[in-house]
C-alpha cells in the first residue's frame, strides 16, 4: 500500500510537470503581445516596453522562464497576473465558489441519476425505463451552451424562481447553475447505474441472497447496490474533478465568480501566468480526485489490493 502511494505520488508529479509545461508552451506559442494586453488601449513607449519586458523576464529564453515559473509554483507561489494581482488570491477567492457549484452538480447527479438508474434497472423494460432512456438521450444531446441559457431564461426570467446571476455565490443562487452543470452527468450516471445494476441483478450471489430468505429490499439495497456502486463511484469521482474544470460555460452564463469564469477571462486577456496558474490548480484537483477514486475502489471492492 505504501509503495503504491509513493509510486502514485511520483506519477502525479510527472503528470503535473508535463501538463504545466504543455500549457505554458501553448500560451507561449500563441505569440500575443502581453505588454500591449497589459496596457489595453493606451500606447506603450519603447522605454516603458523595454522596462516591462525586463521586469517580467520576457527577454529570457523559454526554458529559463518555464523553470523559474515551475520553481515558484513548487514553492506554492502562483505568481502575479499581468495586472499585478496575486494569482494565489484570485484562486483562493474563486475556487470555493466553483467547489460549491461542483458539489451541487454532483449531488444532483447522485440524487437524480443514480436513483433513476436503480429504478430503471429494477423495472427493466417498463414505462419508467423506456421514458428515462429517451429523456437521457435528449439530455446527452443538448450541450451546456444551449442548456444553461435556456434554463436561465425559463427559471429566472419567465418563472422568477431563482436569481438570474449568481455572482459571489450564495448557495441558493448556485442551485440552478449547479443543476444545469449536473444535468449532463445525470444522464451518464443513470445509464451507467442501470447497466451496472442490471448486470449485478443477474449474478449468482443475488440468487444466494434470496435463498437465504432475505427481504427484497435487503437483497437490492445491500447486496446488489454495494456491488453496483463500484463503477459508479469511479465515475462520480472523475466527474467531480471534471465538473470543477468544466464549469466555464455555466459560470459564464450565470456570471459566477468561479475558477472557470476567471480562466475564461484570463484566456481573453492573454494573461499567461493566470491561465497556467488556474490550469495547474485544476490539474492538481483532477489528479487528487483520481487518486481518491482509486483508493476508494479498494475500499469498495476487497478483491482489489494495491502493491
Amino acid at each position: 500500500m505504501f509503495r503504491y502511494l509513493v509510486r502514485r505520488f511520483l506519477q502525479m508529479i510527472l503528470v503535473f510537470i508535463a501538463t504545466t509545461f504543455i500549457v505554458y508552451a501553448l500560451m507561449y506559442a500563441t505569440g500575443g503581445d502581453p505588454i500591449q494586453a497589459l496596457a489595453g488601449e493606451r500606447p506603450v513607449s519603447p522605454t516603458q516596453r523595454a522596462q516591462l519586458v525586463k521586469e517580467y523576464g520576457l527577454d529570457q529564453p523559454f526554458w529559463k522562464r518555464y523553470l523559474d515559473y515551475l520553481n515558484d509554483l513548487l514553492h506554492g507561489d502562483f505568481g502575479q497576473t499581468l495586472t499585478g494581482r496575486s494569482i494565489n488570491d484570485i484562486i483562493a477567492e474563486s475556487l470555493p465558489t466553483t467547489a460549491k457549484l461542483a458539489v451541487i452538480a454532483i449531488l444532483t447527479t447522485i440524487l437524480v441519476g443514480v436513483t433513476a438508474g436503480i429504478i430503471a434497472a429494477i423495472r427493466r423494460g417498463g414505462i419508467f425505463d423506456n421514458s428515462t432512456l429517451i429523456l437521457t438521450l435528449i439530455i446527452i444531446g443538448v450541450p451546456t451552451v444551449v442548456l444553461a441559457p435556456v434554463a436561465q431564461l425559463v427559471f429566472t426570467i419567465k418563472l422568477p424562481w431563482f436569481p438570474t446571476t449568481a455572482g459571489e455565490g450564495n448557495l441558493y443562487a448556485l442551485l440552478l447553475p449547479g443543476i444545469v452543470l449536473g444535468a449532463l452527468s445525470v444522464a451518464t450516471a443513470m445509464r451507467l447505474t442501470r447497466t451496472s445494476f442490471s448486470e449485478n441483478q443477474r449474478s449468482d450471489y443475488v440468487r444466494t441472497a434470496r435463498s437465504k430468505g432475505l427481504p427484497t429490499r435487503r437483497v437490492v439495497g445491500v447486496h446488489i447496490l454495494r456491488n453496483s456502486l463500484i463503477p459508479i463511484v469511479t465515475f462520480l469521482g472523475i466527474e467531480l474533478g471534471a465538473l470543477m474544470a468544466g464549469a466555464i460555460v455555466t459560470e459564464g452564463v450565470f456570471n459566477i465568480n468561479g475558477v472557470g469564469f476567471q480562466l475564461a477571462r484570463a484566456l481573453r486577456t492573454e494573461d499567461t501566468p493566470l491561465v497556467v496558474g488556474i490550469v495547474s490548480v485544476l490539474v492538481i484537483i483532477f489528479l487528487v480526485a483520481s487518486l481518491v477514486v482509486d483508493l476508494l475502489y479498494a475500499v469498495l471492492d476487497p478483491r482489489i489490493r494495491y502493491e
Binding site: 449468482d204 450471489y205 440468487r207 444466494t208 435463498s211 430468505g213 456491488n227 476487497p302
Partner: peptide
C-alpha cells in the same frame, strides 16, 4: 414463504465463488 426460505429449507449452490457475494467478508 420467505420465513421458510433459508430457515427451514436452505440451499447451497454449485460455484461458491460466484454464489458468495464478493464484497462482504
Amino acid at each position: 414463504r420467505r420465513d421458510i426460505r433459508g430457515k427451514d429449507i436452505s440451499m447451497i449452490f454449485q460455484d461458491a465463488l460466484s454464489a458468495l457475494n464478493p464484497v462482504f467478508s
